[in-house]
Write a protein that binds this DNA or RNA. Structure first.
Length: 874
RNA sequence: GGGCUCAUAGCUCAGUUGGUUAGAGCGUUUCCUUGACAUGGAAAAGGUCGGUGGUUCGAGUCCACUUGAGCCCACCA
């Protein structure tokens, strides 16, 4: 290794190791009764997906969990797969055939679906390849697709079973309709966004007295063509006498009634509202209640239809303008007031949703939601961070029925059949030969397919191919996903798991933040602010990407990302690489064989080695705890700090002078080797690469176990003492800088430490003071030893003296000391006040009081020493 | 209209059960090309934790109100 380059090169190593792991089947998991299962099902990416930072974060977290548990000794399965993504995929393939001048109708249903499968074969696994670049240790042999034959069977089975239970029904309702995709959408698929629009005030003349008008306000004037009433609040005095009267709908001259309903808010607009039952959910309810006519005025593509009179064939927004013009001409446009409104948008193509009356299939959600609410309330499923459980419960408690039919071709076709002669509806797992009612074989299947989420909600169990696997790995352990997926997927999986497996689908739900750019904007292609993970991998390496991403992801907080962040990860990988190089080039292979636990004997091992071992075990103990609590950033930052600043900056520097000593050899090797194992879940590639270069090591690091915590090695006293030593060295270095002594020049140093323990400790470790602070003649006194004209500093109850005067600016230094004295005096004053407070003495825990007392003593000591320094300066 | 999150060093952010010299990375300043690493080392400067009030012996850390930023949900036409 020592002959290798100074810079770590992830490019040359990462792909190689991934291939090695795959070829050696190291990702595979299978039921093993002697082990605990740990299971994660991947949120299946769309086959149209291309890896973005959200995926990178999501999958890095899962991979950390999986690798951590695998090395903990659990039978760890990361179940991979992809989602057929009905609308998204259909859109992509439609675009692709459009290049040949074709529409899907030109091909016909079967040919089109064939084309989708061809597309899927060619591009559908792009995202999988990219997940592999990320280092994801999924059991790829188990990979699932939501349109796999068996999976599809399960989807159909679930539909039929829910239908048989009376939980699926068909009906004419107002649904969210995307005119561009030309399909119904669920409420979740039509998120509302604010829109700057207008409130248009229209005048509807009374039939009896056309000079008199009722003014209605609307944001969508084109829907007036479908009006079948005007509604007012029954208590509204302004309109009381008009209730029951007839209006003439302008432009179409249709007669409509004025009705009264308490649903109308008298304070909004004019207090009179036009009622369009076929184009608005509220109006739909009014229409049902008051038995109004349902007039659909649009084609599925949102052009006006035959019910729209002269406006037929105009697009809805074009019609809006023309209608307003015409009304204005007739003097029936009262006014236009700017008005902010929110409208549903298609989550696939962002087209404004049209509330549209149509026949669709729905799932009754209330009965399914009930047990799903219970399991979260009872803590059987826990959200991390816990606040998301509130969001979940709030949604579940107000759940609406789920529209599951989609008017597209790519997806699971609804298993409903219609008998043409007798109109019988047959819901069946397989196509019936003949109608059970009339015996006819003139049967056709429902044209619609199911919502993609109607297949993904079965993911945690439908992915398992055998009963044994299902029994062993289900319920899964942790689900890792983003907040916007809670309603779409998490909630529904909980419902389906309870309904079809009678068990929760997972125990923990870890909700991570959204990846945003530095300005806090969501990363998206349209904004052009994306950072491509693959580019980062190419430039900095996968380990760097993973490290940086994780180190800034506090539990549940959004991630603000700029490209520079990845430098830290790259630098850390390089640091590990070089520290390893250093160790390996100094390591005698025979020293790699010792068993650390046998070797470790307090009495025999020197302080420095005891210290670093203690720090190592303290660190991993804390890291494991943090990982178990899903605090990934804290865990990795802890490991980072340990390795870089304690192991490299202090430990390796201290033992450098005596690197061939057996104890040093054994300890530095053991810590490196063990550290790599702890690091592996976070940075799988470099940990494997270095591990493989260690002498006497064979086999993958993936097959190793995490180092066990050796409690008996943790020694807080030594850790504290060593902290003092470091402070001492730092203070001396500081003095040298103050004196502008060149780094390579050696100086003499006197330390006056009156405290016996401290004195003895410094004596014991004086070699390190000499080496790390470049000291030539070192003397340790127990008495005050600061002579006039010498340069001195104070550390706790010690005086540090460099007998080399004249170089410093005495006045400047005096001033600095005076400031410190002032600060110390003020600290003392505060402490005295605190300790003088009877309530504090009485109520604070004794150990805190004791600690404060100690601090006061120390401060007094420091004050004395500082005064001595000033005095010494003359 | 309801709910949630955030506001801590120049920048980006940590800070689990309230304990008192508030941390990191990046950036800045000074010095160092010393055989592991300049994707490096040493040292330094820099916050009193958005505001107000409260609880407490003690609050960045709990409560109320408030200001600003952002997100989610909701059938205001």
């Amino acid at each position: 290794m020592s002959d290798l380059v100074k810079l770590y090169s992830p490019k040359e190593t990462e792909d190689r190791w991934y291939k090695f792991w795959e070829e050696n089947n190291l990702f595979a998991a299978s039921p093993n009764p002697s082990k605990k299962p740990f299971t994660i099902v991947i949120p299946p990416p769309n086959i149209t997906g291309i890896l973005h930072m959200g995926h990178a974060l999501n999958n890095t977290i899962q991979d950390i969990l999986i690798r951590y548990h695998r090395m903990k000794g659990d039978e760890s399965l990361w179940m991979p797969g992809t989602d057929h993504a009905g609308i998204a995929t259909q859109n992509v393939v439609e675009k692709s055939i459009a290049k040949e001048g074709l529409k899907r109708e030109d091909l016909g249903r079967d040919k089109f679906i064939q084309r989708v499968w061809v597309w899927k074969e060619e591009y559908g696994s792009t995202i999988i390849r990219q997940l592999k670049k990320l280092g994801s240790s999924c059991d790829w042999q188990r990979i699932r697709f939501t349109m796999d034959e068996e999976y599809s069977k399960c989807v159909i089975d679930v539909f039929v079973s829910l239908y048989e239970k009376g939980l699926i029904y068909q009906g004419d309702y107002i649904i969210n309709w995307c005119p561009r995709c030309q399909t119904a959408l669920s409420d979740e698929e039509a998120p509302h966004h604010e829109l700057q629009g207008n409130l248009y005030y229209l005048r509807y003349p009374l039939k009896d007295n056309p000079q008199d008008v009722v003014i209605v306000a609307t944001t969508r004037p084109e829907t007036m063509l479908g009006d079948s009433a005007v509604a007012v609040n029954p208590k509204d005095k302004r309109y009381k006498k008009l209730i029951g009267k007839t209006l003439v709908l302008p432009l179409l001259n249709r007669e409509i009634k004025i009705i009264a309903d308490p649903m109308v808010d008298a304070k909004f607009g004019t207090g009179a509202v036009k009622v369009t039952p076929a184009h608005d959910p509220n109006d739909y309810a009014l229409g049902k209640k008051h038995n109004l006519e349902f007039i659909n005025v649009m084609y599925p593509d949102a052009r006006m239809n035959q019910n729209a009179g002269d406006y037929k064939d105009m697009d809805r927004f074009e019609a809006r303008e023309v209608i307003l013009e015409d009304l204005k001409e007739k003097g029936l446009l009262e006014k236009i007031v700017p008005h902010e409104l929110s409208a549903g948008h298609c989550y696939r193509c962002h087209t404004i949703i049209e509330p549209y009356l149509s026949k669709q299939w729905f799932v009754k959600m209330k009965p399914l939601a009930k047990p799903a609410i219970e399991v979260v309330k009872k803590g059987k499923i826990k959200f991390y961070p816990s606040r998301w459980s509130k969001v979940y419960l709030n949604w579940m408690e107000n759940i609406q029925d789920w529209c599951i039919s989609r008017q597209i071709w790519w997806g699971h076709r609804i298993p409903v059949y219609y008998c043409k002669p007798c109109k019988q509806i047959i819901v069946s797992r397989a196509k019936p030969e003949k109608c059970p009612s009339c015996g006819s074989n003139d049967i056709c299947q429902d044209e619609d397919v199911l919502d993609t989420w109607f297949s993904s909600w079965l993911w945690p169990f439908a992915t398992f191919r055998s009963k044994e696997d299902l029994k062993y790995f289900y319920p899964t352990s942790t689900l890792v996903t983003a907040p916007e997926i809670i309603f779409f997927w998490v909630a529904r999986m909980i419902m389906s798991g309870l309904e079809f497996q009678k068990q929760i689908p997972f125990k923990d739900v870890y909700i991570h933040g959204t990846v945003r750019d530095v300005e806090g904007k969501k990363m998206s292609k349209s904004l052009g602010n994306v950072i491509d993970p693959l580019e980062i991998i190419n430039e900095y390496g996968t380990d760097a990407l993973r490290f940086s991403l994780i180190s800034i992801t506090a539990q549940g907080q959004d991630v603000f990302l700029s490209k520079e962040r990845f430098e830290q990860g790259r630098n850390f990988a390089n640091k590990i690489w070089n520290a390893s190089r250093f160790i390996l080039m100094n390591l005698e292979p025979e020293n790699t064989k010792a068993d650390l636990c046998v070797f470790f004997k307090k009495e025999e091992l020197d302080t420095v080695n005891r210290w670093i071992l203690s720090r190592f075990y303290s660190t991993i103990k804390q890291a494991y705890k943090l990982l178990d609590g899903y605090r990934f950033n804290e865990a990795i930052n802890l490991l980072y700090h340990f390795f870089w600043h304690e192991f490299c900056d202090w430990y390796l520097e201290m033992i450098k002078a005596d690197i061939k000593k057996t104890h040093n050899q054994i300890v530095m090797y053991k810590i490196l080797e063990k550290f790599l194992r702890v690091l592996h879940p976070f940075m799988p590639f470099i940990s494997e690469e270095v591990k493989q270069k260690l002498p006497g090591q064979s086999g993958s690091i993936m097959a190793e176990r995490l180092p066990l915590i050796q409690e008996q090695i943790i020694d807080k006293k030594i850790e504290k003492k060593m902290a003092l030593l470091f402070e001492l060295i730092t203070t001396i270095r500081n003095m040298r800088a103050e004196l502008e002594i060149p780094p390579q020049a050696q100086v003499d140093l006197k330390i006056c430490a009156s405290d016996k323990t401290t004195n003895a400790f410094i004596k014991l470790l004086s070699v390190h003071v000499r080496n790390l602070a470049k000291i030539k003649n070192f003397t340790l006194e127990s008495e005050y030893c600061h002579a006039a004209g010498e340069f001195a500093a104070v550390l706790k109850d010690m005086h540090l003296v460099i007998p080399l005067a004249g170089l410093i600016d005495i006045e400047k230094y005096k001033q600095k000391m005076t400031e410190r004295i002032k600060k110390t005096e003020s600290d003392i004053k505060n402490k005295k006040t605190m300790l003088g407070n009877a309530d504090f003495i009485k109520r604070a825990p004794a150990q805190i009081v004791e600690k404060e007392k100690q601090k006061l003593l120390e401060l007094n000591e420091i004050l004395n020493k500082l005064k001595g320094v000033i005095h010494g300066l003359g």
